[in-house]
Simulated assay, not measured.
Amino acid sequence: MAHHPGLTAPTDPVPGVRLRGLHRAFGGRTVLDDIELDIAKGEFTALLGHSGSGKSTLLRAVGGLDGAAAGRGVVEVPEPSAVVFQDARLLPWSRVLDNVVLGLPGPRAAALARGRAALAEVGLAGKERAWPGTLSGGEAQRAALARALVRSPELLLLDEPFGALDALTRIQMHSLLRNLCARHQPAVLLVTHDVDEALLLADRVLVLADGRFSLDLPLGGPAGPGRRGSAEFTELRERLLRALGVPEEDRS
């Protein structure tokens, strides 16, 4: 269990993510106002909010990416953790397999074997020697997922990982991500602007507004495209769009 430097460590560690009194302010403006959040092992939580609402600030705080002096509060997360961004961030001068195992501890041969297994798991078997520049956008994000999964993360942080992909590729990536998370059971925090994406992937959806959660919405039934056909889907979508302040005439 990791306690990020510069923050107060709790005395009663619990599995999964635990945030208590998380506060961030920039230029005198409060972005996160004493946030409280728990994410259990195996729970998939999606975070929605307007641009500038603090979604990525929250994700960076959970990932320990915002520095020790950025604020106050308790941030307790399981280890290891991994982050997947909208940009796959593959090193162009390294082949795909070398990107996946970059920084992986242990003997080189064992790391390469784990990297090949991770690439096969995301559907990129045979692409180990490819250069990143030859991959499609969807393939690059699959490689980024493999790089995250090869570390067997207890916490997976996703910062709009499919935002730059076309609609068909997004559907394919949604299916892949659901299957991978069901198999590996990390705690997951997904930052997204897409209400439908949140509803189709998550067990729970949070809406961040004015530095606090304005809505904490648990979702019933298994995630996936079948949820779209449920009687509740339209109602859940309406609740989220209202919470985001989307005018009724724009809720198509």
Score class of each variant (00 low, 15 high):
H4R: 13
P5H: 05
L7M: 07
T8N: 07
D12W: 06
P15S: 09
P15C: 05
V17D: 03
V17W: 00
G21E: 11
G21Q: 07
F26L: 15
G28Q: 01
T30C: 00
D34P: 09
G42L: 01
E43Y: 04
T45K: 00
A46I: 11
G52H: 04
G54C: 07
L58G: 05
L59N: 01
V62T: 10
V62W: 06
V62P: 05
G64E: 00
G67Q: 06
A68S: 13
A69L: 06
G71F: 13
R72N: 12
V75C: 03
V83D: 02
V84K: 02
F85I: 03
F85T: 03
D87C: 03
D87P: 00
L91P: 00
L91M: 10
L91I: 05
P92C: 05
L97N: 08
G103S: 08
P105L: 09
A110W: 06
A111I: 09
R116W: 09
V122S: 10
V122Q: 08
V122K: 05
G126F: 12
E128M: 10
A130N: 02
A130C: 11
W131R: 12
S136L: 10
R142V: 10
R142F: 13
R142P: 10
A143Y: 11
A144S: 09
A146R: 09
A146T: 12
R147K: 13
A148V: 14
L149T: 04
L149E: 04
R151A: 14
S152N: 13
L158T: 09
P161I: 04
G163A: 15
L168S: 08
L168C: 02
T169K: 11
Q172P: 03
Q172W: 06
H174D: 13
L177M: 14
N179M: 00
C181F: 15
R183E: 15
P186C: 12
L190D: 13
T192Q: 04
D196K: 04
L199V: 08
D203S: 08
D203P: 04
R204K: 09
V205Q: 01
V207I: 13
V207L: 14
A209W: 10
A209H: 14
L217A: 00
A223V: 00
G224F: 10
R227G: 06
R228G: 06
G229P: 04
S230N: 05
E232C: 01
F233Y: 15
E235C: 12
A243S: 12
G245V: 02
P247Q: 02
E248F: 02
E249W: 07
D250P: 05
R251V: 15
